[in-house]
Nucleic acid binder design. Structure first.
Length: 494
RNA sequence: GGUCGCGUGGCCGAGCGGUUAGGCAGAGGUCUGCAAAACCUUGUACACCAGUUCGAAUCUGGUCGCGACCUCCA
């Protein structure tokens, strides 16, 4: 299809801009992935789900997209200076790489559960140590780094003096960045300025993960991997860089400094930041315990929810807010979204059963404009809540056709075919929502249900209400809801 | 403390200068053996106070409240 105009809210310029790819028809997108030292939590899921919908939208629009999302498996330090992965390894008595593998696997599994597409490339920091060493050298060669006792620091003052861009993304002024914390374990005292940051760190003897470098046996700074891997796989300047907005500072700010410091060019044209998932009005965060794991949410095994919510219901809940807004997770909101999600999915099944009759076109405009608006809203900075609102206009139409409140002869064959073809695509391909309440893939169950509903229909025809209700109530106990319509009955899981 | 953002009807959540967001819940109705589902109708909403404007939830200033970042976090 023809690529439509796309507008993005660029965090760097803080304004909505028309998207212009570097190469016509192609997009390079880099998203900061997880640090795999424990199970993913819902906040991660929201971010990666948001970027999944962005990725899907770009693909739908016809772009060839190279989507790179890294796995951070080294260099991400805790307050006390211990590497997150090493800490995980020590606690679980595993090799660091076992920790990495274990949580990478569970991360992938969760991403599958949320029906997200896999990135084109998923590079790991430890697989790019050589490239990181090279970039440290480039930064040194360009005069933006200095070595202290085997560690290499980025010289933010010098960088700012030359380039005058440090702080542009995060809105920070370098002179305000005086860190009052002691932080001696992070070797603050070696820095010339508090805003300087390590790009290579000399490892303590007991450190588990370390590599040889021209400066010391050590490991790369956390921010470096993204600069290096985005450059390697997408080029020195690519189209879109994304991540959670808690990464804006210092991570993304430093990434920009490193890229510019190394190659004198900006890493990307558009920065996209997703907002935080809240619970009880506070940021959901692993480190302060205000959190619910995806599994707890699915099973309902948490004081924060009254019952379990399915992955797709949770995903739908997330998509009902804009990626750049905070989203407050509450039991009531989840319950409301769950119903809306089911109604949307049911419309898909209903549409399948619809057959076009003779042609009129009274309703063509309404149907087509709802479908058009879906895409228009997605192209307006991926406005999923508005796009979904357009979808619900279509839901009402579909249900009305089925119930006979509207007549299918009021739309042309052309519009009807578009509806049949595009509407499911918008839900499946673009939003990545799948129907998990559908017994449709289970032939045996479908056969049984057909028989059961048939028997009930006979009972009803004989006005044998006792039998009819017995069947209905019995099925209800198995979480199957029977719905009587004009043209017979159908069913769905409750 | 510094920087940024937010405050929308019962709940969630879009919109951001004039026109119905949407979902859920509630009320009334249609349909139905009953129920459910579905459809139709239905909501004094935009923290507060000033100001700009023919017109403000939407712009400006102030007040109050909340949150995020500044330190590991998507």
């Amino acid at each position: 299809m023809k690529i439509k105009d796309l507008y993005l809210q660029n965090s760097l310029s803080k304004s909505k801009e028309k998207f212009e790819p570097i190469s016509e028809g192609y997009i390079g997108m880099y998203v900061c992935g997880p640090t795999v030292y424990s199970d993913v939590h819902l906040g991660n899921v929201r971010t990666f789900t948001s970027f999944d919908v962005i990725y899907r939208t770009l693909l739908f629009l016809g772009y060839k997209v190279r989507y790179v999302r890294n796995i951070t498996d080294v260099g991400h330090l805790l307050d006390d200076g211990e590497d997150r992965i090493s800490r995980g390894a020590r606690l679980d008595q595993l090799e660091p790489m076992e920790v990495v593998q274990k949580y990478t696997n569970s991360f992938h599994k969760m991403m599958d559960i949320f029906n997200t597409k896999k990135p084109s490339i998923e590079p790991r920091a430890t697989q790019h140590i050589l490239e990181q060493i090279e970039m440290v050298q480039q930064i040194l060669d360009n005069g933006y780094g200095y070595v202290v006792d085997g560690s290499v620091y980025f010289d933010t003052l010098k960088f700012q003096e030359d380039k005058k861009i440090y702080g542009d993304l995060s809105g920070r002024k370098i002179e305000d960045l005086f860190s009052e914390t002691r932080d001696d374990l992070k070797k603050q005292d070696q820095k010339r300025h508090p805003s300087d940051f390590a790009i290579w760190m000399k490892a303590d003897p007991e450190h588990l993960m370390k590599w040889n470098s021209p400066w010391s046996e050590g490991f790369p700074g956390w921010h470096l991997e993204c600069s290096v891997m985005s450059t390697k796989y997408l080029g020195e300047t690519f189209d879109i860089h994304g991540g959670g907005n808690d990464l804006k500072f210092p991570h993304h700010e430093n990434e920009i400094a490193q890229n510019v410091g190394a190659c004198n060019c900006k890493p990307c044209n558009y920065w996209l930041h997703t907002n935080m998932l809240l619970m009880n009005g506070k940021k959901m965060s692993k480190s302060d315990g205000n959190t619910i794991s995806p599994d707890e949410l699915f099973t309902g095994d948490s004081p924060h929810v009254s019952k379990g919510y399915s992955p797709m219901a949770v995903k739908f809940f997330m998509l009902q807010s804009h990626y750049s807004s905070t989203l407050d997770l509450t039991d009531d909101a989840l319950a409301a979204s769950e119903k809306g999600y089911k109604r949307l999915m049911e419309s898909l099944k209903t549409l399948e059963g619809l057959n076009h009759k003779s042609s009129g076109n009274d309703l063509d405009n309404e149907v087509n404009s709802s479908l058009d608006e879906f895409i228009a809203h997605m192209c307006d900075d991926f406005n999923t809540p508005r796009a979904i609102a357009s979808l619900f206009e279509v839901v009402t139409k579909i249900n009305s056709f089925k119930e006979g409140h509207l007549d299918l002869s009021q739309i042309s064959a052309e519009t009807f075919n578009r509806l049949k073809e595009d509407y499911p695509k918008y839900i499946d391909d673009v939003l990545g929502l799948k129907n998990e309440n559908d017994g449709g893939n289970n032939d045996a169950l479908n056969g049984i249900m057909e028989l059961v509903l048939d028997l009930r229909q006979e009972a009803r025809a004989n006005k044998d209400w006792g039998t009819a209700d017995k069947i209905r109530d019995g099925l209800a106990k198995s979480k199957i809801v029977v719905k009587d319509g004009k043209d017979g009955s159908n069913w769905q899981f409750s």
